[in-house]
Design a protein around this nucleic acid. Structure first.
Lengths: 256, 256
DNA sequence: CGCTCGGAATATGTCGGAGTAAATAGGGAG
DNA sequence: CTCCCTATTTACTCCGACATATTCCGAGCG
């Protein structure tokens, strides 16, 4: 129906250089620009973003556009505004790091290694438990989605974007099968970690293991309703991914 | 520097006692009103919020105020707006349920039992693992914060707001000690679940166990650096809280 | 009778200005 | 010399108007 693609995900995809023109979602572009600047450390916590008028003039946009962007950042816990005091960057523990858009900003430039480590620890904690719940609660449709994702992973390799998307879909289907809304919100964070794994391994030219069999083991346990087996299989999968990524991270990022 | 306490958050610290008070900014009040309406199910996913002008007239505010509120909801993934098509409520899996403000909206009215269950499952998954990491990484300051929180829990009972705040502080300190930013973001969600536990048990007049000894066991294990013991002790703590809440939830909410 | 193209209506996105609250600096009193 | 009160400056918050993009509907054509 027409409601299917109502959500336009391609917002904030273009830089703000064309701010003057009839761009779409001007404040989205500003928010992207400021968000990446904050996440990359260009603005440190406690720093002040000089006033509305200064920024609006610098970016050649009206104050409203800048203001709406600030509103977005405020809603995500990145900044706080007060009269006379200006807009300040909040300390990191206020940031909503699991917000999909914030994650995108974090991975837009060179993501912080410590943050990637945090994400992998989150995976190692959440995904085995999620696989356990999924084994108990999955229905036929969940299994079909997982099976299709596995097939897509086999068809395209992990070297293609389609393959990585299938990988994310597989992990997402497990979270969906837990019937837990709070866990489902983590899908963006876990997807980012999964994506980072494959992309990083590819960059480091270290693709020592074929991850498909490990995924199949997880699927089989979930399909069989084997909760303990699913948790253990997922544990193995995450541990291997963590190990590969950790060994790859020791090397300098730019291999060439 | 003197910039330390710039973040006087009088909006995220209070749970829901000042729900109707327009103490915040105007657009914040609108966002609260609309957010609670969406979270309570008054607006179902896919529903359209009639145009800006209609709402602005209905609420007796200007379009900008309404618009900024919509911007906040959009940033939290609750709604999406397109020209001519109006503003629609997104499906639940897009909502950022772990956002502190969204959580506050969810608990403002009668929270959904299924959602509370999801939050408790999240606790059961994350907190033992967090205690394990905390036992390995905590420093003296972390232990001091936990000890102070325990003392405050003893001084005030769980029946007072101060006591509940101390309870949340204790669990928060554990997350802080994990040195994991991704886990730290979950503090709001876990704090909401913790708060709900004590408040609900109080309402149901079922306070069968003194939770302090369980907390002390967790603290001792973390202080001793006993990772496995900390995880197990936290496991017991969460299981008991879950059991108590589950048995209380069977009863009708209004005990009188 | 069905499809396509074009115009009009409508809701969103954007802009600049007025009002208000807060922090700082300066002056006066103790 | 120190402390408190007040006035000014500053920057956010709110408001109404304009521009623009998208959708719906109708007319014309095949």
């Amino acid at each position: 129906m027409s409601e299917a693609n109502f959500v336009n995900d391609e917002e904030s995809a273009r830089p703000a250089d064309e701010a003057r023109g009839p761009g779409r979602r001007l404040h989205g572009a500003i928010a992207h620009k400021l968000g990446t600047a904050i996440l990359s450390g260009k603005y440190a916590p406690g720093d002040i973003l000089s006033g509305e008028v200064a920024f609006a003039e610098e970016l050649q946009v009206s104050r409203s556009a800048y203001r709406e962007a600030i509103q977005v950042l405020t809603a995500k816990g990145l900044v706080a505004s007060r009269p006379k005091a200006g807009t300040r960057v909040l300390p990191r523990d206020r940031w909503n790091l699991l917000d999909p858009e914030v994650l995108g900003w974090a991975f837009a430039g060179e993501p912080d290694i410590e943050f990637v480590r945090s994400l992998f620890e989150l995976r190692a904690i959440v995904e085995p438990a999620a696989a356990r719940l999924a084994a108990q609660r999955r229905d036929k449709n969940d299994l079909k989605v997982m099976k299709d994702a596995l097939a897509a992973m086999r068809r395209h390799t992990l070297t293609t974007e389609a393959g990585r998307a299938a990988d994310r879909d597989f992990h997402n289907a497990i979270l969906q099968a837990t019937r837990n809304d709070a866990l489902l919100v983590l899908s963006a964070s876990i997807g980012a970690a999964v994506n980072w794994t494959t992309q990083f391994k590819q960059r480091a030219r270290a693709l020592p293991r074929n991850p498909i069999p490990d995924h199949v083991r997880v699927y089989d346990a979930i399909a069989a309703g084997d909760a303990a087996g699913a948790a253990e299989a997922m544990n193995v999968l995450v541990d291997l991914a963590l190990e590969d990524t950790r060994s790859a991270m020791e090397l300098p990022v730019g291999g060439e």
